[in-house]
Every structure is written in structure tokens, then in C-alpha cells.
Design a binder for these strands. Structure first.
Lengths: 246, 246
DNA sequence: CGGCTCCAAACTGTTGACACTCAACACAAT
DNA sequence: ATTGTGTTGAGTGTCAACAGTTTGGAGCCG
């Protein structure tokens, strides 16, 4: 039912940029839908009919089906057996649960990253904090959020643990759709920057436990607010069309 | 290819046990293959051809394909585009990475579980330790391993975090296939029991940080041995040739 | 007027067939 | 003997069609 502007998934033209795209059809559909969902162009609650999608994208139902299956195991859509797929939405409870797991993963990441710290990493983190301050001064909330995400991801990347990176990526993807909520929850940008500085100091001094502890407190700031009960933030996203989830 | 003993997945009779199984075909295939892999009846490295599986199970390639896709995102098989699927095997490095993530998840679990501790939980844990001691006395290593898994899972279940439980289950499933290795790594059963007692005391006294720290040390015992370089344990499972099933 | 039954449209689950790719093997040339 | 090339065959990627189920509503009954 979505708008008709198809993205020409099935295009056979090889002129698309210099990089040769040897992806299978369902992989392209998967990537396309993933982008549509993550960018909130397909908001939570949207029903995804196989035939409609297939026609819209110019492919058969097979690849669409396969793509939906993959998205389901990634948690971006939920399939109700014989009832079709829906862009999944997180309840306040589920959001909180994912947030807790994210905290645990980041703590592991920073513990692993500290002994592997390089001067380049410290420099990069320092640069990110500086840019964050710029954004805070300009009230560029979107920019700040992006930099903040990069800051946190830097530790995960530096951990050297591929499994951890993969899990973290999936988790952040899901939580990212509620960026508005997370941001509103955070409150003062200045305080966040100060916390980042403190964390960076602990990392530079090579103290994994202290860094992990600080990070834990840092992450808990928005979590506590959510627990306190600002449900309205979710009312925006939780679209109760008709079909009830589970 | 593989042996013929099919498991009658496609059976349409509703007489199968009292429990009504309203699962779709691919869900049944998925569950079946999952069991086969986890029980090591399909050892790592086994090539899974769609046509062969489909014929063997009495279904079409569609459901098999879908099941393989799900297993892939769960990490139990790896699909090489246009080359088919293979039962995935963990390298020493990957095993270690997963182990680290498991540690982080369990620490989160015990932190969440401590404030929610009930007398029933403490009693259950106490009972598990007692049974472990029995097994240790009888040199019942398999029994001990099972009880140990239950002990650790108890905290995850008590955490009340559904997402955490799901991730933990998947992780343990994958690591579980290397049970032999993990066991050999652990060494003294008595020491393990003593550590369990100490952890239980910390939980009973309502000290999440201490419990988490103790758990961390407890989990790290086999991890350190693995880091030390006992690769031979993996040689057992890493089947290099293109050997046929059984 | 409200509730129940039955019917039809729509959609998913499944199947079998076709097209295409890649890997291995054989053979020829250096 | 080794390397490069052509061929072949197995097996995946994709499609269109069939069958079963669910949903929503029209019609009937209380």
C-alpha cells in the first residue's frame, strides 16, 4: 500500500557506480527495506504485504519473502504466521530491555578496548568530543546524536570482538529508530559532553574498571528517565492500527 | 546424499501427541535441523544441499530454503552465496569472542536478578549446587555440565529481561556444541562448586556488584585456559575434509 | 436492532519448473 | 609437468501457479 515510487530493485543496468554490485535479488530487497525502516519512512506498525511489495519493487514474491524473513530474525519486522509481516515496534518495556543489554555490551567493549588503546583512538575520541561541543553550541541536535553514536561505537570497534560488534550493531539499529525519544530523554547536552570527557580520561589512564563504571552511569541517565515513566514519548511511535501484536 | 532416515516432517496426520502443532512447514524444518545441529548429529562442516534435504524430508525446496536462512541469521549455519549452506564451526577466536559476550550478558543478568531475588530462587540454586556435588562425587561429568548450565541460566531467567534471555539462549546454544571443549577446559569440578557457593552467598546478601564480580572471575577460568592456547580441543570438531555425513 | 452464520476476497504457505552461476574436470598448449 | 582454457554438471536464485487459511462483510435469525 506504500507509495508507488519503486526503487528499481530489479534493474539490470550495470552502470550503477564503479563498484560492481553482485548481490542477489533478495539481498537488495533486504537492504532496501532495511533502509526504509531505519529511516522511519516505513514507521512501526506498517503492514507489509508480500504481493504489494513484490509488484512495487518489480520482483517476484520469493525474494520479498526471504528478505522479510531475514528482517524478522533481525527484529526489524515481526511476522504473524499466516497473517503477514508488520514493521515491529518496541514497547516501553522492550525498549528498556534492549537498552540494558546495550549497556552491558558497551561495558564489555570498553573493558576490552582499554588495553588495546592506541594514540589514534584517543585522538579520534578527543576530536569527536570537540565536534560535539560545536553541535551543542549550535543546538544541532541531530549532529550531536550522530557524533554521540560514533563515540560509543568507537569503543565497540576498538574491542576487536567481531561477535560483539555484530550484536551491538543490530541493537543500535533497533534502538536508533526511537532516536527522538532517546534524545528527549537525555536532557542536557553539556552534561553528556562532560561525562564523555571523564570517560575519555579513564580510558587514557588505562583503567578499564573505572571507564566501564563511568560508562555505565553515563548510559543509565536516559534509562532512569524512561523508568520514571515518560511514556508519552512512545505514544508518538506506537501506532495502534487495529491488529494487535501477539 | 545423506542417509535416508527421514523424520516425516511433512506428515499431515494430526495424531502426533496431544499437543496441537500448528506450525508452518518451514518452522518444523527449522526446528528439526536445529536439533540435528545442536545434538552434533550434523557436525560442523557438513554441507547442506537444498535439494537433498528437501527430498530427504519430503518437502519442497521453499521451506528448506527459508529454514536455512533463519538458521544462518542465528549463526548455526553459514550460507555462501550461490555455493550453498554449511553447518558453521567456530574458530578458537570466534569461540572466545562469544564467550566474552556470554560473560557480559551473565553479569548483566546477575545484576538485574539480585534485587529480584526470591527465597524460592535461593533454594533452587542451593539445590542445584547440592546436585552438582553429587555428580562430582560420581564423576558424572555430563550431569554436572547440565546442572552448571541450569545454575547460570537461573540468573538469566530471574533477570526478567526477555531480550537478554533470548540473546543468551542463542549464544549458549552455539557454545553448547563445544561442550567437550568447555568441560575439558574447566578442570577441577570442586573448585567450580566452591565458586558457585561464593556467588550464591553474594546473591543472598543482596550485593549485585560483588556477585557480578565473582561471576566474572568464575566464567573467566576456562576462558584463560583457552587463551593460553589449547587449540587441540578444537581440532576434534573442526573437520577439514569434505567428508560425507557419517 | 443486535448477534450469529456463512460466503467470498485476499493473502500467505507451498510447490514445481526454469534460468543462471559457479566449481570442478578434462584437455591442449607451453 | 604446469598452466591456461573450454566444457559440463550440480545446485542455487527466481518465478508463476496452486492450495489452504484468515478476514471482513453480507445476509439471516432471534
Amino acid at each position: 500500500m506504500a507509495a508507488g515510487a519503486a526503487a528499481e530493485i530489479a534493474a539490470g543496468d550495470g552502470s550503477r557506480s564503479g563498484k560492481l554490485e553482485n548481490l542477489t535479488l533478495w539481498e537488495r530487497v533486504h537492504g532496501f527495506l532495511r533502509q526504509e525502516i531505519l529511516s522511519n519512512r516505513l514507521p512501526p506498525g506498517t503492514e507489509l504485504a508480500e504481493v504489494a511489495l513484490a509488484e512495487s519493487l518489480g520482483v517476484s514474491r520469493g525474494p520479498v519473502r526471504e528478505a522479510l524473513g531475514r528482517l524478522a530474525t533481525e527484529g526489524l519486522v515481526t511476522v504473524r504466521p499466516r497473517r503477514g509481516a508488520v514493521v515491529s515496534s518496541l514497547s516501553k518495556q522492550e525498549f528498556l530491555e534492549a537498552y540494558q543489554v546495550r549497556e552491558a555490551l558497551e561495558m564489555l567493549a570498553i573493558r576490552l578496548a582499554v588495553p588495546r588503546t592506541t594514540p589514534e583512538l584517543l585522538e579520534r575520541l578527543q576530536g569527536l568530543i570537540a565536534k560535539m561541543q560545536d553541535c551543542a553550541g549550535r543546538d544541532d541536535v541531530d549532529g550531536f546524536f550522530e557524533l554521540n553514536a560514533q563515540f560509543h561505537r568507537a569503543f565497540v570497534d576498538a574491542s576487536g570482538n567481531g561477535r560483539l560488534m555484530e550484536l551491538y550493531r543490530q541493537l543500535v539499529e533497533q534502538l536508533g529508530r526511537y532516536r527522538g525519544s532517546s534524545l528527549a530523554l537525555r536532557g542536557s547536552l553539556k552534561r553528556s559532553i562532560a561525562e564523555h570527557r571523564t570517560i575519555l580520561r579513564a580510558v587514557a589512564s588505562g583503567d578499564p574498571d573505572r571507564a566501564a563504571h563511568l560508562l555505565s552511569e553515563h548510559i543509565r541517565v536516559p534509562q532512569r528517565r524512561l523508568e520514571a515513566g515518560d511514556d508519552e514519548l512512545f505514544a508518538l511511535r506506537t501506532i495502534p492500527p487495529k491488529g494487535e501484536v501477539r
